[in-house]
Design a protein around this nucleic acid. Sequence first.
DNA 1: GAGAGGCATTGATATGGATCAAGAGAAGAT
DNA 2: ATCTTCTCTTGATCCATATCAATGCCTCTC
Lengths: 248, 248
Amino acid sequence: MDHSSNLTQIKVLAPCPNVHSAVDCEHCKVRALSVCAALEADELAELNRYAHPFCLSAKQNLFAQEEESTSVYNITDGAVRLYKILPDGRRQIIGFALPGDFLGLSMAERNAFSADTLTTVSACQFSRIEFSNLVDKKPQLLRRLHNLASHELSLAQDQMVILGRRTAEEKIAAFLMGLRKRWGRGSDHLSVLVPLPMTRQDIGDFLGLTVETVSRLMTKLAREKVLVIVPDGVRLLNMDRLEKLAET
Amino acid sequence: MDHSSNLTQIKVLAPCPNVHSAVDCEHCKVRALSVCAALEADELAELNRYAHPFCLSAKQNLFAQEEESTSVYNITDGAVRLYKILPDGRRQIIGFALPGDFLGLSMAERNAFSADTLTTVSACQFSRIEFSNLVDKKPQLLRRLHNLASHELSLAQDQMVILGRRTAEEKIAAFLMGLRKRWGRGSDHLSVLVPLPMTRQDIGDFLGLTVETVSRLMTKLAREKVLVIVPDGVRLLNMDRLEKLAET
DNA sequence: GAGAGGCATTGATATGGATCAAGAGAAGAT
DNA sequence: ATCTTCTCTTGATCCATATCAATGCCTCTC
């Protein structure tokens, strides 16, 4: 365990499953393409030139709240939880990062939240400085990032409605429907199978509920044939009912 | 009431209190400067060239959720509430816009929320198209707007913690301390006098509480000499106590 | 200055979700 | 294999906040 002198190596399980240079990483390229559809080919290539792909095992810390922010990340595989902790230990999960998502786009000096992996995660790391310089040279890229940030803001505002004005059952329904949509992003049809890489506690901390309430309501929805609980996820049966509960 | 054929004129009370061309409006220029400190003088001048100043009386709708978004606004005086309504009428206020704040920076096709004035408001309106074109020509401006959007996202995430994981009393304290900070923005010292242009109902809909709970807790804090309720606001007495309640 | 409507406050009561408690799997560690 | 730890579930009880209800301002309007 102590044979590595590089601190960051402690976290790293293995290089990206595809043996590759950064430019040719299938994982990274595919995701970068999905994110940067508005960019020119040469801009894409340049973005990939700065990407450092890596893998992390489950339940590892990626970065911590208040810590100096040195990197921007693009998740290529797996899921990450983003959260804030109050001094007395209460936790609020502010989001889950899925493949294609960027972390640290705000370019702030310090991280506003902590992040750790829920599953094995593949990601591309960019130096914040290099990324910032690249962005300065490519206004189109900045425009694209601004759109991403705006979309994130919109999701955060939707979450404010869920947290402030919805019942526990509606929260669960909105969470499942929202996650289903996000998993389906990029493909043309949505699956009724929704993977849940996070624990019930995580879901509770995301929705402002306790573990017990999450568990009880999932059981209730299953009893009412709205969904089926399967290993590591749920299968949605009664979409109408869920849509009704989650409707904006 | 029907002597104006211009629909937007119905809302408008009077031109900006300062008689002026857009370029020379003291209101607009001062605020634009606060927002665009990183910009060159010629960029500032260009921004002002597109600004259309106007005034609105209290309790007027500025724009509505789902409506096509045609404008970007910069508030120069007064306060605006931003909110989303659920189909059954429940309301979540997602923020209050104060002098210096921009509305509609996401540049989305449609508004994600509704906005109406709490007080008489002075603002500068920009055509979304013109604003977008200007932004395309001025990467520095885009960078600045991205920073503003990132800050808004950060505020939204803080609000998620408040909504999901704080008690009613902590919510009130965090709200008052946050508003105090925002009113003091730009000046070098914070006042203990916090104007509250919004109703108790608005505060409740912002914090995920009922009017009654807001009223009860304000009274409780006043009874405990933490604050004094004054016309249209509060005077904070025991800052330590409030900071303790609101601490991140 | 009388009436109407909006806002704030306060009291009584109800309840949704929290808390406390216990047990049953499942996954890892030794 | 056995022990430990973690997660999930379910039940009993509690309590913070919602709901329901009444009253007293203000500030309009006429």
